[in-house]
Amino acid sequence: MCALQLVADGVIFSCIIILGSIGLSLVYDIANFPNFAHGDLMAVGAFGAITANTVLGLPFVAAAVVGIGVGATVGVATERVVFEPLDVGPLELLIASIGVALCYRAVLIGGFGSDPRSYDVGGRGRVEALHEATGIAASPRSIAIVASTLVLVLSLHLLLQYTSLGRQMRATADDPDLARVSGIRTRTVTTAMWIIGGGLAAAGGVFLGLDTIVRPQMGFDLLLVLFAAVILGGIGSVYGAMLGGFAIGMAHELTPLVPGVGTEYKAAVAFVIMILILLFRPSGIMGGKESA
């Protein structure tokens, strides 16, 4: 396989990682714990879209929106019912989030079984014009994933930089206590973050399902790769998560170019990068908070 093809695959995979890691990073910063249920939240979104698509018979685009809505709702509901009432340290929150992850997955397996599913939408073949021009085999599905991710990421950027809510979010991420005394309703802002994080995670899940297949374990299998992206980018930094997601996604797919390392060690490469970053630059490449 040529290097250009690997780069193209890397871009597609990066999109999914970016969408997952933004929410993970936001929650890590605000609630101060690594949410182990975030990967399974991606799966919840993917299954929300599968239900809308194959059971209710909605067209795929509408189904994807439903899936994103389901992810955002489940994220906020979990925060309100489980995490917010807990008055414990970060490690206990981490353990509780494992419990949440198991509950999500149990519901998915109970409701849908563990057999893999796929969306009822075409676009699997490669785009011939692109293949002839560049030699890259990419399906219309992949192109849609990349385009939608760009739209979502750009919208988030505009939201953060040019709206009142965005400024409040950045202020809260920077210093929650100072934000609160300045009159920002931090609870509303936190809710907004869970909505955005859950919705983006669900979008990542839907796109992962579109790129590969939908199964209950899909999100959890990606969780450590998401952590790698978040830690590489710097916890709490949205732009860091984007950059980290891109770098980890590319590293994941470009692994075959490293001599002596087989594709079966794709994920291991991401984890090793993560461990190295934790050891040598735990604040990440974006250096933490200033870019929120």
Partner: peptide, 9 residues
């Protein structure tokens, strides 16, 4: 799986 998750929480 659900019982164990719930128990933890």
């Amino acid at each position: 799986l659900f019982l164990i998750g719930l128990l933890v929480i």
